[in-house]
């Protein structure tokens, strides 16, 4: 049986298998069709119907299940929803167990949430360091707000205030007002 305890392990393995079977396009289609439109349809429906309050409900529930020791922080204002991951439960599982079958596991988050949030009318600012730390800001696509300054939304729990957060932008994968997993800016560090 395929279990849920080590889900992140066989999920990551599946990305590599799909890429070998059908190329990058098949991986993208998997994230959008299987994860966004099928597996996570409860998230999709909630966020399309309720916007930022729906994001609070969905991620508040799912991250507490995945990371009961609170390796994350959720914050928000009227026009922005933000998550800071200090210890991503998913990437952390792979790092602790030495698992790697796909070139950049972290891409899967933008792979399914990007299209989901586009369909709901939102865009994403995001950075990740491949080591289990990242941040996300979600704003209405019609808005004009830019990335918040470190600490402006999440206070002291802003991951960018960590002493080990890279100062060199080249060490971060970055997205700006994006919804597409391939709209990555910069970043030279590989997993």
């Amino acid at each position: 049986m395929i279990g849920c305890y080590d889900f992140c392990g066989h999920y990551e393995w599946t990305f590599g298998w799909l890429e070998r079977a059908g190329g990058h396009a098949l991986v993208r289609e998997y994230w959008n069709e299987a994860i966004n439109h099928d597996s996570q349809r409860h998230a999709r429906d909630l966020i399309r119907n309720e916007g930022i309050p729906g994001m609070l409900k969905y991620w508040g529930h799912t991250l507490l299940e995945e990371s009961p020791d609170l390796g994350f922080n959720i914050s928000h204002r009227e026009d922005v929803f933000r998550i800071d991951f200090h210890d991503c439960p998913s990437r952390g599982f792979l790092l602790r167990n030495g698992l790697k079958n796909y070139r950049d596991y972290c891409d899967h988050c933008m792979g399914w949430t990007g299209p989901m949030l586009r369909e709901a009318g939102y865009v994403i600012d995001h950075e990740h360091n491949h080591l289990g730390q990242c941040w996300w800001e979600v704003r209405p696509a019609s808005g004009t707000g830019g990335q918040a300054a470190p600490g402006a939304v999440a206070g002291a729990k802003d991951v960018r205030l960590r002493p080990d957060w890279p100062k060199d932008p080249a060490l971060l994968d970055r997205y700006c007002k994006a919804n597409d997993p391939d709209a990555k800016l910069g970043g030279t560090r590989k997993e």
């Binding site: 849920c4 299987a34 996570q40 799912t62 299940e65």
Partner: peptide, 13 residues
């Protein structure tokens, strides 16, 4: 224990 919602992803996969 794992998060049971991941069974949704296995079924969708």
């Amino acid at each position: 224990q794992g998060s049971a919602d991941f069974y949704y992803a296995t079924n969708a996969t």
